[in-house]
Simulated scan of single mutants.
Amino acid sequence: MPVLSKDVKIAVVRALAEFDTPTIVQRMLKTVYDLDVPVNQIVAYNPTTYQGRALSKSLRRVFDDARKNFLDGVESIGISNETQRLKLVDEAANAARENGDTKGMIRAAEAADRIRGGHWKQKSAVASSGPIVVFNAPQVPDGVDASAAINCNQLQSPAEGSGDA
């Protein structure tokens, strides 16, 4: 196992504090410092793991500070902001509209609803170039007032329909 300098140790601890995996840290060390460090040596710098339980107090302090700063800085990450996510979904919906992608527009609308905390579900099938068609919609028999049919449970399923559909 290679001996790591203090600067490299701090870089490893900070990366692990920001939830980078040991494999990602290993690649970073190879790219930035041209070091081949085994994953089990990297894990020893994460005090939240069994292997890292003996991490020095100074590196533990670096880890704790980096983790706190990372977690407190979530709002500075654009995609974590609801408005930013809605803006991205709006751009996707507009692109889908321009391309005539009806399914894409519906997926974007569903995503926007989930972002806002809604629970909209797609209850219709979409034809590729035609209107939205709703299946399993109740049909009102001929000669029956629709409001009266709803109140009297006289609706028929499409399978039981009058045969003129």
Results as ranks from 00 to 15, higher is better:
M1I: 05
P2D: 01
P2Y: 00
V3Y: 13
L4P: 12
L4E: 07
S5I: 04
V8E: 08
V8S: 09
V8L: 08
I10T: 09
I10E: 08
V13R: 01
A15N: 15
A15W: 13
A15Y: 10
L16S: 04
A17G: 10
E18L: 11
D20Y: 15
D20M: 15
P22I: 10
P22M: 11
P22F: 11
T23Q: 13
I24C: 08
V25L: 09
R27V: 01
R27I: 01
R27L: 01
T31Q: 10
V32W: 03
D34T: 01
D36R: 02
V37G: 02
V37C: 14
V39N: 04
V39I: 13
Q41M: 11
I42F: 08
Y45G: 05
Y45W: 02
P47W: 00
P47M: 04
T48R: 01
T48H: 01
T48C: 03
T49G: 08
Y50M: 13
Q51V: 04
A54H: 06
L55W: 04
L55Y: 06
R60S: 12
R61Q: 13
F63L: 02
D64G: 06
D65S: 09
D65K: 09
A66S: 14
A66V: 09
A66E: 08
N69G: 01
D72Y: 07
G73D: 04
E75R: 14
E75T: 14
I77L: 12
G78Q: 11
G78N: 02
G78S: 12
S80P: 01
T83S: 15
R85K: 06
L86Q: 13
V89G: 02
D90T: 15
N94T: 13
N94A: 07
A95P: 00
A95Y: 07
A95I: 07
A96I: 02
E98L: 10
E98G: 05
N99P: 01
G100R: 03
T102I: 15
K103P: 00
K103F: 07
K103S: 09
G104A: 07
M105K: 04
I106S: 03
R107H: 14
R107S: 15
E110N: 11
A112Q: 03
D113C: 11
R114K: 14
R114M: 12
I115D: 05
I115E: 04
G117N: 02
G118Y: 05
G118D: 03
W120K: 10
K121R: 08
Q122E: 04
K123P: 00
A125Q: 07
V126I: 13
S128P: 05
S129Q: 12
G130Q: 04
P131K: 05
V133L: 12
V134Y: 15
F135D: 03
F135A: 06
F135P: 00
N136Y: 06
Q139C: 06
V140Y: 00
D142N: 03
G143W: 06
V144R: 13
V144Q: 11
D145H: 15
A146W: 04
A146F: 06
A149P: 03
I150P: 03
I150N: 05
C152Q: 07
N153T: 00
E160I: 00
E160R: 03
S162Y: 09
A165T: 01
A165I: 01
